[in-house]
């Protein structure tokens, strides 16, 4: 009886909130005719201002770069908290990993995954992707190592100290680009336009590729640290 009441309450709340969202969206479509100044500005002048073909990256790392700085600070806080709670000591923990076939197959595949992540990071201003997505693919390599080959292998190849160094390097790269913007352009995190080449080539768009590389290093190393400190306890009893 009580369970049924809970079910009815949950269904009612879901229906009411769904209806609220639906009517909200319906009301919002009234505002369609008002000229959307800022988005139209981004679409028409984004390529001129930043030299980046991918407008999403241009907005993320040029116009709204300060928001991206906030996001990476959030990731840094999450990594710090998880490491503080979950892993008391950074000890190598061994496990046997998976079977021979899986190990050899992923031994062939892993370099290509790394190549793809580097491609996604460095071509963030030309094609879909960017620092965040490529960084998560970098973290996937570390996850493959610790699941397939055992976490001792991951510890030997990429030690937690090295991951910490990579994360700090990424954050410092981002912030130093921002400080350089004060000196050369006058504003914090402004695009360093004198670095850029012709739009559409790999070395273009000013400081956006450098910020992409910094974010990629930071996100990849941070998520790898999170996964390592979560899996550390898991395999301890298998020894």
């Amino acid at each position: 009886m009580k369970k049924k009441l809970t079910h009815i309450a949950v269904i009612t709340i879901l229906a009411v909130s769904g209806a609220a969202v639906f009517f909200n969206l319906k009301v919002m479509s009234l505002y369609k005719d008002i000229p959307r100044g800022i988005s139209r500005y981004f679409i028409s002048f984004g390529l001129q201002d930043t030299g980046s073909l991918n407008l999403v990256t241009a907005i993320l790392y040029d116009y709204r770069a300060f928001d991206s700085l906030g996001e990476s600070t959030v990731i840094f806080g999450a990594v710090s908290g998880i490491v503080l709670i979950l892993s008391r000591k950074m000890l190598p923990v061994s496990s046997h990993g998976l079977s021979f076939i899986v190990k050899r197959t992923l031994g062939i595949m892993t370099p290509f995954i790394a190549l793809f992540s580097i491609y996604v990071i460095t071509h963030g201003h030309l094609s879909p992707g960017g620092g965040f997505q490529g960084g998560v693919i970098l973290a996937a390599i570390s996850i493959i190592f610790s699941i397939v080959y055992g976490s001792a292998f991951d510890y030997k190849r990429y030690s937690p100290q090295m991951k910490t160094t990579m994360e700090t390097t990424g954050a410092l790269m981002f912030i130093s680009i921002g400080v350089l913007g004060i000196f050369f352009e006058g504003f914090f995190l402004d695009n360093l336009n004198f670095l850029g080449g012709k739009a559409g080539t790999l070395i273009s768009a000013g400081s956006i590729p450098i910020i992409n590389i910094g974010i990629g290093l930071k996100v990849g190393a941070g998520l790898a640290i999170i996964f390592y400190s979560m899996i550390q306890k898991t395999f301890r009893e298998e020894l």
Binding site: V56, V120, P128, G129, V136, I137, F227
Partner: peptide
Amino acid sequence: AADVALAEAVIGAGLNTAI
């Protein structure tokens, strides 16, 4: 929305499953 698609594929299907 290719950017969002890439992020969703990488985080939703890859990282979330492993964690």
